[in-house]
């Protein structure tokens, strides 16, 4: 079956004074219909830029998608006209952001903002759109939807605003929802509710979910398939249980070790030594080599390709170069 979203060798570059910054450097990934794929990685590893590139939001004088292919439902998003892309966004392809507070217009009512994409894409009338908006508010689990529809964003809490954002994003029944750290700005109890909500909506509508997060807990709870990114590249990917049980790349191993485990007492939580390298100063070798405890000479000379390790799992590491 063809994937709903098929990204191949995506390159997103930024022109800086110091040189070309490869924010996304040859990322390939696929999301099938109804599937949940998680992209994990530290800050600055290119997760969000991948999502922005898919939606055609990388623009301006310095940044551009320099290469690759992004196919959505068989069509290449990167070669679409602005018009075509616009009719796709918010309709078949939708996105929610990290900060619900700043993603809503402070001077428009909640109901009005939910109604906007309905009027734009489904061509509903004002009244009909407002009626749908109230239904959507109810569907995302907010009580008293009629009142909330008349409220302004500053009157709602962060968790409710994120529910509203979700309502807006799913209003036109998208086939794919991209969620960029949807729970990062929320407190822990609300996080779980938001994830539950996303899962519930997914079960009902069968939409696919591309979830971007740095929280492995979120990954474990949501993902079917995981993609681990480091310095603009995919370093490991695999089916979720397999990847959690048998992480192959030292970076994935480090990520998993730096997560606290309930009931297990440890002196100090593990953290991966060092910092994410400056993407402008990457050498020829593996970007993780300087922080890797298994680093060999070869790692510094030559970059390891992403290669299958066992079934349903791939890693870009020389440790596994000869296997599989």
């Amino acid at each position: 079956m063809e994937a709903l979203l098929d990204i191949r060798e995506l390159q997103t570059h930024f022109q800086t004074e110091a040189g070309v910054l490869r924010a996304v450097d040859g990322v390939s990934l696929r999301v099938r219909e109804g599937e949940t794929v998680c992209i994990v990685g530290e800050s600055g590893c290119g997760k969000s830029m991948t999502a922005m590139s898919v939606l055609g939001l990388v623009e301006g004088p310095s940044g551009k998608v320099a290469g690759g292919e992004v196919r959505f439902g068989g069509r290449d998003l990167l070669r679409m006209s602005r018009q075509e892309l616009r009719t796709l966004r918010g309709h078949e392809l939708s996105m929610i952001f990290q900060e619900p507070m700043s993603s809503l217009n402070p001077v428009l009512t909640i109901g009005r903002q939910i109604a906007e994409p309905l009027r734009e894409h489904l061509r509903l009338g004002r009244k009909e759109a407002m009626r749908r908006a109230v239904e959507l508010i109810r569907e995302v689990g907010i009580s008293r939807p009629e009142q909330i529809a008349d409220a302004y964003p500053h009157e709602l809490s962060g968790g409710m605003l994120q529910r509203v954002m979700i309502a807006i994003a799913v209003s036109c029944k998208p086939k794919l929802l991209i969620a960029d750290e949807p729970t990062t700005a929320l407190d822990v109890t609300i996080q779980a509710q938001i994830l539950d909500l996303l899962r519930g909506l997914q079960a009902k509508s069968g939409m696919a979910l591309l979830l971007i997060t740095h929280d492995l807990g979120v990954v474990a709870e949501m993902a079917d398939y995981v993609i681990v990114m480091y310095a603009g590249k995919v370093v490991e990917e695999g089916e979720v249980e397999r990847l959690f049980r048998e992480p192959r790349h030292p970076y994935t191993q480090g990520l998993l070790r730096s997560k606290p485990v309930l009931g297990q007492v440890r002196e100090e939580l593990y953290s991966i030594p060092g910092q994410v390298p400056n993407p402008l100063e990457l050498g020829a070798g593996c970007a993780f080599a300087d922080r890797c405890e298994f680093a060999m000479d070869r790692c510094r000379r030559q970059e390891p390709p992403l290669a299958p390790v066992g079934s349903d799992q791939q890693a870009a590491c020389w440790l596994h170069g000869k296997e599989g």
């Binding site: 939606l55 939001l57 892309l85 009719t87 966004r89 939708s94 996105m95 428009l108 994409p117």
Partner: peptide, 23 residues
């Protein structure tokens, strides 16, 4: 961000300008 959000929602220019910026 909320104006970027309207881009992601695929709203057309006129709607973004009059409906979201002007208010």
């Amino acid at each position: 961000e909320f104006m970027q959000a309207t881009t992601v929602l695929g709203l057309r220019g006129r709607r973004r300008l009059l409906g979201h910026l002007l208010p």
